[in-house]
Amino acid sequence: MNLISSNSVNVKELNLDQILIRGLYTPTLDKQIKSEFKISLPKDNLQVKQDNNIICSKNSFDQWSIIFFQQVRLKLDTAIDKINENEKILATNYSEGQIYIEISGENKIFMLNKITHFDFREKNFPLLTSAQTLIGRVECNIYNIQNKLLVTCNRSFGDHLKSQIIDALKF
């Protein structure tokens, strides 16, 4: 859904699916994820791997996010149950608890600089990395993928974040 396009910035709200995985990296876990979702787990913190319609990000030393650009909601629970058979792993369906906002366009960084102190320069936030920061005073995850940014936050803050983004563009 297109939220707003203005001043060479495009903002869309997407309907995505997400799994949050807690656990330490093991080749077994990686193999399981790869066989299930055709993407392997990044090893470095804040590294993002992207493949077709999936991105996989290592959020911290024992946490990964897998985000699906095509809705797979019904099958996700089955996959999660299978992953959770591994008693050393906790996989949770995060799909409905988050909102997903895609920001693209030449002036996206200028717009974001109105509502976040985060340093978007290449040397601090290169392509295929993720970060956790405050945007519009809301705790967000942000992913730098190709020529766009994906911002996610808790659904309860969704209206506020969207309003802040629209305000930053308009004002």
Partner: peptide
């Protein structure tokens, strides 16, 4: 700045 009125504090809403 813009952190006034409805932006004074982020609001959380239930679904």
């Amino acid at each position: 700045g813009r952190s006034t009125y409805n932006f004074y504090d982020p609001e959380r809403k239930t679904p």
